[in-house]
Amino acid sequence: MLAALIIVFREVFEAGLIIGIVLAVTGAVPNRNRWIGGGVLAGALAACVVAVFTGALSQLFAGMGQELFNAAILGLAVIMLTWHNVWMAHHGRELAGEMRAVGQAVAEGTKPLLALAVVVGVAVLREGSEVALFLYGVAASDGGSALSLAVGGLIGLALGGGVCLLTYFGLMRIPPRALFATTTALITLLAAGMASQAVAFLERANLLTRLDTVAWDSGWLLSDKSIVGRTMHTLIGYTEQPTQMQLVVYAAVLLLTFMLVRMSGSQPAKRTIAARG
């Protein structure tokens, strides 16, 4: 039971963190629960579909279907996160300042919600497909152990939900004025981390071989497998043995986001005021 608990918790942990951040980012936006709930639901359904077709997916692209699929959905999430940051930099002031009609603001506000719903869906899909495969294997095996494993899995899932709530309420303790800047930074780091994970998948598929030398090994300092290592992996894309290409892409996403946000209008000071009024 404990093994099942640990395996499921490990998988839902990352999704829990991401959903928690997205909930905090969208704190005051009307209808956000519907959008994020929709993202979770769609992600969970897609995870089941992916789990069923894992075998077939693997056979695509000379056995590298899984890797390319993961890289593609991570890439999609990076675009959505970056676009969200740019959109908020551009429109955040108008939205919060009620410079536009409320109705129009709400209508426009659904655009970044859609982007974040996609991000949530992708997170749930990636982690959920492994959980579904693992639990399916459990259900397929007979005997009394199946029940106890399923209970372990459910507790693991509940703990993942706990991580989500902790993240959300932790972020909500940040004063509203600082929250916008914090979440913008969090989203940017999240995007850079996901981009570098996508690079790792392309490297595993042998599609990306340039600069694939491991730049350093900081496993002695912070292991990927530790709970802090896992948290850092999700939040800032920490990995104990990054390749040079992962670092290049990481830096490029940070730089690009910084430039796009600067260019899309509002100054940092104005955006802070724009935060939540």
């Binding site: 894992t54 693997s58 590298m64 495969l133 693992f134 294997g137 095996s141 694939d212």
Partner: peptide
């Protein structure tokens, strides 16, 4: 086996889910 498994190695920097009754290809540097 009738269950999926996930081949993983930290030192080789690989992880790959292999579905039940199927074959997985893992590239190692």
């Amino acid at each position: 086996d009738a269950k999926a498994m996930e081949f993983e190695s930290k030192s080789l920097r690989v992880e790959k889910v292999v579905a039940a009754n199927s074959e997985g290809v893992i590239n190692v540097r």
